[in-house]
């Protein structure tokens, strides 16, 4: 069990690094979703299925989606500005 947790921890750390060092936000949202799955696996290994469940729903699905929507909104705002000029 401890090996499992150690492996999951390492993967989570790597995932965090990938999220942080992905400079383009739309791609970052995809990585964030994967990071959410990694965290859920870690939480399961830590015997916290309820937390893993909310992590899957919130961290792996809802938050990346909100990020994606924000990016779309920002892009359309800026495109509208560019057309005005």
């Amino acid at each position: 069990m401890n090996i499992l947790i150690t492996v999951a921890l390492t993967l989570v750390l790597a995932g965090a690094a990938v999220v942080v060092f992905t400079p383009v936000p739309s791609r970052q949202a995809v990585v964030l979703s994967v990071y959410g799955i990694l965290l859920a696996a870690l939480f399961m290994a830590l015997q916290a299925p309820d937390v893993a469940l909310s992590q899957v729903a919130v961290g792996a699905a809802v938050v990346p989606l909100i990020v994606m929507l924000a990016i779309r909104k920002i892009d359309s705002l800026r495109a509208a500005r560019r057309r005005q000029r």
Partner: peptide
């Protein structure tokens, strides 16, 4: 947007 996502990552450290 990138900064806000990084903030979310920072918080996951606390979990």
């Amino acid at each position: 947007v990138h900064a806000v996502v990084c903030l979310a990552v920072a918080q996951s450290g606390t979990y």
